[in-house]
Design a protein around this nucleic acid. Sequence first.
DNA 1: CGAAAATTTGACATGACTCAACTGGAGTGG
DNA 2: CCACTCCAGTTGAGTCATGTCAAATTTTCG
Lengths: 190, 190
Amino acid sequence: MIQSLIDHISKYVPLQPGDAELLQQHILLQQVAKKKKICRPGNALIENYFVIEGCLRLYNRDDDNKERTIQFAMENWWMFNPGSIDPDTNSGFYIDAIEDTRLLVLTRESWDLLGARLPALEKYFRIIFQRAYNASLWRINNIFCHSGTERYHNFVRCYPAFVQRIPQYMLASFLGLTPEFISMIRAKKV
Amino acid sequence: MIQSLIDHISKYVPLQPGDAELLQQHILLQQVAKKKKICRPGNALIENYFVIEGCLRLYNRDDDNKERTIQFAMENWWMFNPGSIDPDTNSGFYIDAIEDTRLLVLTRESWDLLGARLPALEKYFRIIFQRAYNASLWRINNIFCHSGTERYHNFVRCYPAFVQRIPQYMLASFLGLTPEFISMIRAKKV
DNA sequence: CGAAAATTTGACATGACTCAACTGGAGTGG
DNA sequence: CCACTCCAGTTGAGTCATGTCAAATTTTCG
């Protein structure tokens, strides 16, 4: 239901009557099965996703071809694909579904169109990106100020519900650790 | 000169005649001497800074009271203060000048006022924050995919000019390393 | 010129990784 | 519905990248 998104937007900016319909016309509901990828590096098309139900993850692969999870998105979170650093290379990220997921798709074209017709939406996304940026600065701070063991315990304390839903090995790479090491932490040997 | 900012904005969104004057009325030019702090944790007032000339850094202190540099801003970069996670605590960041710096100050009030009168500005900041957020995701990716030695060499390769301007110990904490270790890398012992 | 700050050097310590083997559970096909 | 496979998680031994601490040296700046 697009209503979750309308509610989310309304928390940050006022919407006019008719805006909801406009949004509805340009945003697609999509169903993604667990483990299915919805985009991969080099994808020319940049889309953004709003999770209605389920869970997405953003990741890529290091030199050793191991997956590195960069971000999760659960219900009522946006997942933005940062795309490539260098448009010429095939650099970029994968996004896949950790669970069966229902999401809203905002394509680049719809984005441009909606932004032009609905100035409040620019403000909404300005706020969303500002918060996301702030959060990522805090996250970087957290990475450098705390040991792996501390980061794991903090995560468990702050997001106990997530820990249930996310496989250990994904959480490990999200925290910059190995699955083996998390295993050790949980066994209280650290 | 506010002209640098006007030029920067114009790269992303079209400005109307008169907009420049409006901006000028609500944005302050400020001079900050090297090593002077312009804000610190718990500062109620949130301002944002556009660097005309010089260099700013955003940092805070870890449990051991050591400085951890989170971000730099050079000419034509915005420095945004992420503020506190929890408004009740005194958590938050310091910003100071690495060099004598001339900057433009955009206060919270001016921001609100300008955003309302100048919709193009919301779009401009949406784009700026989006890019900043994307960059920070790449940075997190970089932290986890590469060793400290690699991160140092990459930084030197990508931003040789910055390395001249930034003291080693600040670069060290920006890269999540100790000054001693960078010293060792430079001595080619690693 | 002198004091304080930044950088370097080296000895030593350790958090987290690697690799390999083992265990358990979930999905799948016959 | 069982047996098999495969993937996730665990355990342990050994290793290494990077940190810590302390002292020496160089640079900065009043």
